[in-house]
Design a binder for these strands. Structure first.
Lengths: 196, 196
DNA sequence: GCAACTCGATACAGTTATGTATCGAGTTGC
DNA sequence: GCAACTCGATACATAACTGTATCGAGTTGC
């Protein structure tokens, strides 16, 4: 006899379906009905798992942040050498597990969603600053190791790198051919030449 | 006796109001009613000037593109020296006339809007390529003049610059303090050091 | 094995949007 | 100065989405 799916299974399926529908039609144009149907449920299932669309979005975002964090932690544990870390990051970039990692349009839309939310913006800003700090450290370490010099201003290099990452992501949405997928990593190499 | 406002006046007011409402609440959450009311009209006025919300958005985008083009043409005419051109661009950056230039959140959302539209994406891609070409030329010229060297790969430098511009714009939405408004122009200076 | 519980389905009420049809005040041409 | 026209206001029909209340099949505890 078929066992009833667990609550976590249902939530997971709704995450997947929501990411897909959001990616295809945009957050605004996606209705609860569409998301539930794409997951093979009705709206009843949705409302028994989430309070509202906003609730779902916040949950998705937290899920994504959590997975990203764990992913980076795992990489850092396995690849203590910073050069290897960048290489590993590059290699795993394409095969991300969470729904959000595979949906660049949605990724951007979620940033705007948060940017518009007075309540959640500080949280994301904090996260951005933390990432900037981490990247600054990595840049310093890798540059010292590979180029044998010091980056003049790691914080600034880090700002540029993260802006580049999202900038390339954005432009690839409009014209996928224009900026190859590894543009970001190439930029890392370029910026390492700015040593003294 | 007060003369009746002309059609162009009304359209202009609706543009302004739409930019404001879109910026505040997002394209999806903005209704025709809100836009019309913000402009001091009712929905009747809107529908006698535009076919739909999509029609308005496309018109806004074309208006913005047209103004930007004219702005750059004027700058190029007055400042034939490329260094002066960049300086002039920097000086006029903040005092743009069109509604869209003053609404960074909307600016981003419109990029996503177009990215999602199978029909209009190629058009924007074309425009992105054209800008990249223009920037490549400017980079080559300014670098030759100010640094006395050649940029190794102008096309790549141009890609990076444009990605940086939009990347900074995006991050400033989340954390305005993190990346100062002139980050892009500073980046131009940094990249000019990548000459050989 | 039965009682309590969980969770998805269904039905309903209420809200809000869109687009169209019609009206009327103000404007322009001759 | 009057007829034709323009354009914004109002009213109406329609569609879609949300959230809640209720139901029932399946599951679990004891």
């Amino acid at each position: 006899m078929r066992t009833r799916p667990t609550r976590d299974d249902t939530r997971e399926k709704l995450f997947e379906a929501a990411a897909q529908v959001f990616e295809e039609r945009g957050i605004g144009a996606a209705s609860i009905e569409m998301i539930a149907a794409a997951a093979g449920f009705t709206r009843g299932a949705f409302y028994s798992n989430f309070e509202s669309k906003d609730d779902l979005i916040v949950a998705m975002l937290e899920d994504h942040v959590e997975r990203s964090l764990q992913h980076h932690r795992r990489l850092l544990e396995r690849h203590l050498n910073p050069t290897d870390f960048v290489a590993a990051l590059r290699a795993t970039e394409r095969s991300r597990q969470d729904p959000l990692g595979r949906a660049p349009l949605l990724h951007m839309e979620l940033i705007l969603f948060v940017a518009r939310s007075e309540k959640r913006r500080p949280e994301l800003a904090q996260r951005l600053r933390a990432r900037r700090k981490l990247v600054a450290d990595i840049v310093t370490a890798t540059t010292r190791e590979t180029a044998g010099g010091e980056v003049r201003n790691p914080a600034w290099a880090s700002s540029m790198l993260l802006a580049l990452e999202d900038g390339f992501r954005l432009h690839r949405l409009i014209d996928p051919d224009s900026t190859p997928a590894d543009s970001f990593f190439r930029a890392v190499g370029e910026l390492q030449k700015l040593v003294e």
